[in-house]
Design a protein around this nucleic acid. Structure first.
Lengths: 237, 237
DNA sequence: CGCAAACTTGATGTTGCTCAAGCTAGGTGG
DNA sequence: CCACCTAGCTTGAGCAACATCAAGTTTGCG
């Protein structure tokens, strides 16, 4: 019954895109689960594709998704990585504007769009709360635009590492779990896999990070990494 | 009294960022103007700056604004251009996350944040309507990410021209009014002024556009421009 | 008319992309 | 259990797109 609420007391929520954290009351999530069903997706499986009818709203319960848009010749841009607690699928015109695909094995809670709409109308304050979340999303999207349009490869990769680090709850240790491939990272940062790989190697050589495996990175000098990410990095880095 | 409504029967609305169109009922805008005051800004003047308290919500009545974010060393990214009917200032944490500056002479309708919040609570359907607008914003932001991360200079400039053309209502003629400088365009597209200038020259030489003046451009081959913008351009362009 | 800001154009430079090998790790079957 | 196989990752060499630097030119305004 309270599947979604059970795994997240203070649920993180996402609306139609990038991830942001937000608290939902138990009552609200109760309403949510009343019109919902759980689904599992294997890595690489598609939840929905760009152009599909947006007839469902999903909440991520476990695992990680990528959202992306494609150009006709196959160039891809990943607009966000979603993890547990995030909401997706609230498309404006009833048409999905991006594809959502599982990176790891993913469990999602599926709600019908009409049911979700009714929820917005009936639960007082629901729309306002979602509006707050949407504003946060927008803010995150603007930061990502700044990154894509004006940051160097090193600054982009540093920003990405900090984002991943901060997302996995702040567990003292600076161990960053990177479930996505270099190709995903590249398409998220507007780079190529080779540049991502080279940049990580350089950060390793400079002692800012340790590459335990390609999917498990440790932050060694967070301060310097933050300076880089903010664009205040010494030019000699 | 109905200042905002008077200039826009079907008002375009913006929420905390990029522009999107949306219809507001006369009743709603009536409520809006009840807690509002008109202000004028000269070109170059600042409405609010990144980091300011977000204590107001503005609706653009006339003219054009730029919204931008800065990196510490002065690199700038313009996240959007706002024209009549757009709303700004609904910041998530009460802190402005970008600067808003007048490009042309601008008239805005200023609302107190608290008054606007009350409006959201009291007018039924208001929050939901704003949520729709926010979703459209988010969608636009994702398209801009795709542009910034994966499009070539030519594709970026073509996309920009079409955006400007479509914004100025569809008045048959393909006359595009460009009130912003090359520097603004460059910072919107993640390019330099020189690249913007050269790209426009190339489009002119290829016969896709005519540069009547630097601020007045005519689209001559919309179809080809649209192909370019979509990323399906012939490599020989 | 003269000045300053904005724009264009050219020559050169650099970042990140492309192309091309190798390398590593995880999974499978012998 | 190990050897192979493949997908993903790293590394290197050369290249291209766009940036930078540097003049000129145009435009609009006092």
């Amino acid at each position: 019954m309270y599947a979604a609420a059970a795994s997240n007391t203070a649920a993180k929520i996402d609306l139609a895109g990038l991830s942001v954290s937000h608290g939902l009351s138990r009552q609200t999530t109760g309403h949510l689960t009343a019109i919902s069903s759980l689904q599992k997706k294997a890595p690489g499986e598609t939840l929905f594709a760009e152009g599909d009818d947006a007839d469902s709203v999903y909440e991520v319960v476990r695992g990680m998704l990528r959202l992306y848009k494609l150009l006709p010749d196959g160039r891809r841009l990943i607009t966000g990585f979603l993890s547990a607690g995030h909401l997706i699928g609230l498309a404006p015109e009833g048409i999905c504007v991006y594809t959502a695909e599982a990176i790891t094995e993913v469990t999602v809670c599926r709600h019908t769009r009409t049911g979700f709409e009714r929820l917005i109308d009936e639960v007082p304050g629901m729309a306002k709360r979602l509006l707050t979340v949407a504003s946060q999303e927008l803010c995150a999207a603007q930061n990502q635009m700044l990154l894509l349009g004006r940051k160097s490869a090193t600054e982009k990769v540093a920003s990405f590492l900090l984002l991943m680090a901060d997302r996995r709850g702040s567990e003292g240790a600076e161990a960053v779990d990177v479930p996505m491939t270099r190709s995903d990272i590249a398409d998220y940062l507007g780079l190529t896999i080779e540049t991502v790989s080279r940049t990580l190697t350089k950060l390793k050589q400079d002692g800012l990070i340790v590459l335990w495996t390609s999917a498990h990175i440790e932050i060694r000098d967070r301060e310097q990494l933050e300076e880089l990410a903010a664009g205040e990095g010494d030019p000699d880095f």
